[in-house]
Simulated scan of single mutants.
Amino acid sequence: MPSLKEIKGRINSISSTLAITSAMKMVAAAKLQKAQMAIQNMLPYERRLHSMLIDLMGAVNMSAPASEEGSARLVSLSNQPDHTESEGAYSLMAQREVRKVAIVAFASNSSLCGAFNSNVIREATAVINEYRASGLGDADITVYSVGRKMAEAMKKLGFPSPADFTKMSDSPSYDAASALAQELLDGFVSGRFDKVELVYNHYKSTSSQPTIRQTYLPLSLADATADLQAGKIADSASESDTNRGAEPVGAPVVRQGSPTTEDLIVEPSKEELIATLLPKVVRLRVFTTLLDSTAAEQAARTVAMQLATDNGNDLLQELTLEYNKGRQQKITSEILDLVGGSMQ
């Protein structure tokens, strides 16, 4: 049985730890509220852009360039505004045999957020093993690690990140996300990547952050249309509860009663409008994914610190009770010694 001094020391240590966990919970809750506002303000804009793009692509009957008609429908995404369409023209819907793949995995820079990092690292590892099983070598798989924890885990597996993206996890920035998206676009267009996937934790609610795996490139009009027909996409504007998360980013939205592209007059042309919307959508998707992952991280950290605080309070009550029992037993023993000595 530990002495009263040892129990008292444990009580003081736990009390100090509770002060830290309570402060971290308050900080995480404040950051979560800020992240919630950012993702909720961004998602309707991103979804509507995606929905408009799908409607326009469907109106001009754009399909994968594997078809004869699709091979002629290329979209210009040049960084330089003075480039001609022929110089920067390419298709982001080209379905190719997957021989080289890029995986963008999002995690955090710090721990103390429950299973947030371990879940997404496990999913990213499973994706890598899946491609290994399909016949791809390690040299054919490129992992862009966003967050220090992901970078460390992937480096141990033999997949160091091509660049340092740790700052993106702490301070989400559209400029940094746009630069990463442009690198992925250039790699896909040049043939360096045949497929690009995103792996991240989606903020569904404060207590739920499921791991999501999405195909970033090539763009698939068929998959998005299937989701729309199946009714899987809901309008984010109808979600009034701020504690509820949105659907995974990159999912388009269809509003009931909205006019179809056949009812609209598009100038100068639908093709030129697609060429303008497409780079915005693909770049914005990386940024929205980053915001979604940040919100999920803060939610996981809030829950983890709340659980740590509750467990600490329970342990503190047990130790206090044990200390009081030991102290009472010691006092009783001293009284008995005094009474026994006086009777001799």
Rank of each mutant, 00 (worst) to 15 (best):
P2I: 00
S3I: 02
L4E: 07
I7G: 05
G9Y: 03
G9I: 01
R10Q: 10
I11E: 05
A19K: 07
V27C: 00
V27F: 00
A28V: 10
L32M: 03
L32Q: 02
L32Y: 03
A35G: 08
A35F: 14
M37Y: 11
A38K: 14
I39C: 12
Q40R: 15
N41A: 15
M42N: 13
E46R: 09
R48I: 08
L49D: 00
H50Q: 13
M52R: 15
D55N: 13
G58C: 11
P65I: 01
A66F: 08
E68K: 09
S71R: 14
R73V: 09
S76D: 10
L77R: 06
P81V: 03
E85Y: 06
E87C: 05
S91Q: 01
V101R: 04
V104S: 08
F106D: 04
I121F: 00
I128C: 12
G135N: 10
G137A: 11
V146T: 04
M154K: 04
G158S: 08
F159M: 13
D164Q: 11
D164T: 11
F165T: 06
M168Y: 04
S178Q: 06
S178Y: 03
D186M: 06
F188Y: 15
V189N: 12
G191M: 01
E197H: 10
E197V: 15
S205V: 07
S208E: 15
P210T: 00
L221A: 07
A222S: 12
T225G: 01
G231P: 03
I233L: 11
S236W: 07
S240E: 05
V249R: 04
P252G: 02
Q256R: 08
L264G: 07
K270D: 14
L273Y: 10
I274L: 10
T276V: 09
K280C: 03
V286R: 04
F287N: 02
A295R: 12
R301G: 09
T302G: 15
A304H: 08
A304I: 03
M305D: 05
G312D: 08
D314R: 08
L316P: 01
Q317E: 15
E322R: 10
Q328N: 13
S333Y: 00
D337Q: 13
V339A: 05
G341K: 13
